[in-house]
Amino acid sequence: MKQEQPNNPLHGIKLADILEFLVEKYGWDGLASRINVRCFTSNPSIKSSLKFLRQTSWAKEKVEQLYLRSI
């Protein structure tokens, strides 16, 4: 049974969807200027960025915060 999470605006949104939205909105260069991590600056791709973000909680939090400010 699924639990409702009314205080979590990211509930049900996949990290891949967040990243694709941000890349569409800002492009890789714009994303790299807002969040300075190597996966956005050096040969960026959705796949490599997702791998990094899933392993690095501080970077994932920055991406999620940028998403929330952008919608």
Rank of each mutant, 00 (worst) to 15 (best):
K51S: 15
C39R: 03
D17I: 07
F21A: 08
L10V: 07
I13E: 01
S45L: 06
C39P: 00
G30N: 03
Q5H: 10
P6A: 08
E24A: 13
S42H: 11
L53Q: 00
I18R: 13
W58H: 13
V23R: 06
V23G: 08
T41M: 13
K14E: 15
F52C: 04
I46W: 07
S57C: 02
N8G: 09
I46A: 02
E4H: 05
N36S: 10
V23L: 04
G30C: 11
G30M: 11
N43V: 01
A16M: 12
S48W: 02
S42T: 10
I13K: 00
I18L: 07
L15N: 00
K14I: 10
E20G: 00
N43M: 02
G12H: 13
G27H: 04
N36C: 01
G30P: 09
D29C: 03
C39K: 09
Y26R: 01
S45D: 11
S49R: 02
K51N: 14
T41L: 03
K47A: 15
N36E: 12
K51H: 06
S48R: 11
K25S: 06
T56L: 08
A16V: 13
R54A: 00
D29W: 07
I46D: 00
K60Y: 09
Q55P: 08
S48M: 05
G12V: 07
Y26T: 00
E20Y: 04
T56M: 06
E20T: 10
G12N: 07
K60M: 14
L53W: 04
S49F: 01
